[in-house]
Structures are given as C-alpha cells and as structure tokens.
Amino acid sequence: MNIEAKLLEGNKRAVARLITLVENKDEAAFELLKKLHNKTGNAYVVGITGPPGAGKSTLTDKLVKRLLDEGKKVGVIAVDPTSPFTGGAILGDRVRMTGLSTHPNVFIRSMGARGSLGGISEGTSAAIKVLDIYGADYIFVETVGVGQSEIDIVKNCDTTVMVMVPGLGDDIQAIKAGIMEIGDVFAINKADRDGAKKTAREINAMLDYSSKDWRPPVKMTIAMNNDGIEELFEGISEHRNYMASTGLFETRRINNTKNEIVELVKHRVLEHLFDNAYNEQLINSLSVNIVKRETDPYTACDEIMHNIKKN
C-alpha cells in the first residue's frame, strides 16, 4: 500500500499503518514524517488527564460527539498502562467510545504506554502528527492518569483538561502542587455525586495560589448524561482564544517542541549507548565491579562518557 498517497486521501487504514510504523520506530516511516512535516500544525491538541475512574473516556466521547455535530474531523489517542512484566496491555478505553467507531470523521487509536512512565511515549507524539496530517481538526489525547503522566501530557498538547471526581477530597490535599498547575481547564465529572461542590471549592482555593495569568475555569460535568459538555467545551475554547490573543499559543508550541527534540536526542543517545555491543559489555562488567566495590558508579560514568566521546 502506498501509505503516503492513501494517507493524504484520508484513508484510515493508511493512517493506522503509519501510526504502527512510527510507534515501532520504522525508519522509512520517520522519513515520511520528515517529508510531510509541513502538513502538521493544524490540529488543536487537547490533553485529557486525571485519576483512574474519573470518567475521562466517557467525557472524551461526549466532547468528540459535540465536535462531530459541528462537522469537525476528530482524532482520539487513548493511552493505557503497559505491564512492566509481560510487555502486554489491555487497552479498554475504546469501549466507552464504541458508538464512534463507524463515524467517517473520527479516528480512535488505543496505545500502550510501552515503558514510558509518563504514559506519553514517543509513539504517542508521532501518532499525534499522523492524525494531524490525516486532517484532524481536534486531537484528544487521553492519558493513563497516574503519577507523571500529567506532566508529560502538557508537553504534547495545546490545552490540558484535568478531570477530577468528587470524593477525592483528601486526595486533593495529597496532590502535589505541580500537578494542579498543569490543568488549563478543570472538569469535575460525576458531579451528581456527594462532595462535588466541595471539590470545586477546594480546587478553586488551590488555584487562588497560582501565579499564572490564566485562571483555569472549573466546570461541572456528568459525562454519562451529557451534562456540562457544552460549558466544558466553552472553557477549552476560552483557553484557546486566550493563548491565541496573547501569543502564548506559539510560545507553548515552541517549548513543547524544544522538549520533544531533547527527548528524541536523549533516546537516540541511549539507543546508541546500548546498540554498541562494546559499550553494553563495558556497562555489564562495570556493574559487577561496582558491586564488588572495585570501583564506584561515578567513576564508571566518567569511563562510559569517555568511551562514547571516543566512538
């Protein structure tokens, strides 16, 4: 199949194949991405993150439907954890978006985090580009929702929606301030549950301490009932307009890209490090010696760096 031609035609099989190829670091696929880079940049990328059980998938489903009603083309990438032991994954987010599978203007792809703690792998970044080339007006990236993934997602999207659930009261105190800062819009889902208003108050209280110019709106939603979706979307649009009018949109994209190329280089260097069999041997024997107390980790590092520079 001529992937390039079919991709530009909007053929979903081509989109899917290309995502697979870039996810698995196929060289030819990256050449294609290089070639088609000027076709990216049009899609608006929205990150959906939050703790497990918050209803991210259901919320995404409703936001997508709303955009489809406007005639927009939408891509969704749903990331689930990969088992560190087996390398396998159950990708179950699609279930909550099952009605969208046959809509011509939607493309949904489930991805395993595949070893990236942050839940946003290089594969995800590349997949976003493919959907961009495909012609998506909006791309939703739904993350694993634990730990570091919230940080990573900011670096890959234009607006981050943080989905919370009432009854996490105590957990909000436990959430580190850094994570609260990354939400551009907050959605309190399952808002019919006890404690919804309290949760909203607590989030607003924490936001009072923020020094940022942008005050994230806090929206109440009941995704299952399609309640509050319009308002949430307004919040996202507000953020989009804010960034456009202040020039922050471009700044953020430049920062995200900076991060991306640094990550790419990091990975390339590490690959190079372990690709070189001599280096791997060296690392193995060094490790044995460190444990034997014949050398130490810092000296070992110097030695490896020296070898890299030499090679």
Binding site: K12, R13, V15, A16, T82, S83, T86, G87, G88, A89, I90, L91, G92, R94, V95, T98, S101, T102, F107, I108, R109, S110, G112
Partner: peptide, 26 residues
C-alpha cells in the same frame, strides 16, 4: 496481555461494521 500482547476489547453489542472499523483503526 500476560503473553505480552496489546489487547483492545470492544465491549458488548458490536455490529460487524463496528468490529471491522475498530480493527482497522487499531
């Protein structure tokens, strides 16, 4: 999954159309 595969589960009540669309996108 325990054998190292990535598994997409469709849930119940799928039409053949939905299954095929999912298979292709995934």
């Amino acid at each position: 999954r325990d054998a190292g595969m990535e598994v997409i589960y469709t849930g119940l009540r799928q039409t053949p159309d939905q299954i095929v669309n999912a298979a292709i996108q995934e």
